[in-house]
Amino acid sequence: MTLQYQGEQYGKPTTFTIRIIGNNLSKSSSNYQIDLLVGDKKLPTFTSEIHQSLSNCLKEIYLFRKHNGIKFEESTEKIVSLYVPYDKVLYSHNKYALFRA
Rank of each mutant, 00 (worst) to 15 (best):
E8D: 01
L54P: 05
L98A: 04
D40L: 12
L58Y: 00
N23Y: 07
I70C: 02
S26M: 14
F72D: 00
T47Y: 03
F16M: 00
D35A: 06
F46D: 06
P85Q: 00
E73F: 14
K27G: 10
T15L: 06
S92G: 14
Y91C: 06
Q9H: 12
N56H: 15
M1D: 00
T15K: 01
C57K: 01
E74C: 07
D40T: 11
D40S: 14
L63W: 09
C57M: 13
S26K: 06
T45G: 08
Y62G: 00
I18S: 03
M1K: 02
E77Y: 13
G69C: 00
Y32H: 12
Y83L: 11
Q33I: 12
N56M: 10
V89F: 02
T14P: 01
K88Q: 06
S28H: 09
P85C: 03
Y5G: 14
F64T: 13
S81V: 09
S92R: 09
K42V: 06
R65I: 00
Y83V: 06
S29E: 13
F64R: 04
S53D: 05
E8F: 08
L25V: 11
R19E: 10
I61S: 10
L36T: 01
K71V: 08
H51G: 05
Q6K: 15
K12V: 10
M1W: 01
I61E: 11
F72C: 07
Y10I: 12
R19L: 00
T2H: 11
K78L: 15
Y32N: 08
I34D: 07
I21T: 09
V80L: 02
G39Y: 12
K95C: 11
L54C: 05
K95L: 13
G11F: 09
E60V: 00
Q4E: 10
T45M: 14
L25I: 09
V89Q: 10
E74S: 13
I61Q: 07
Q52I: 13
Q9L: 02
Y32T: 04
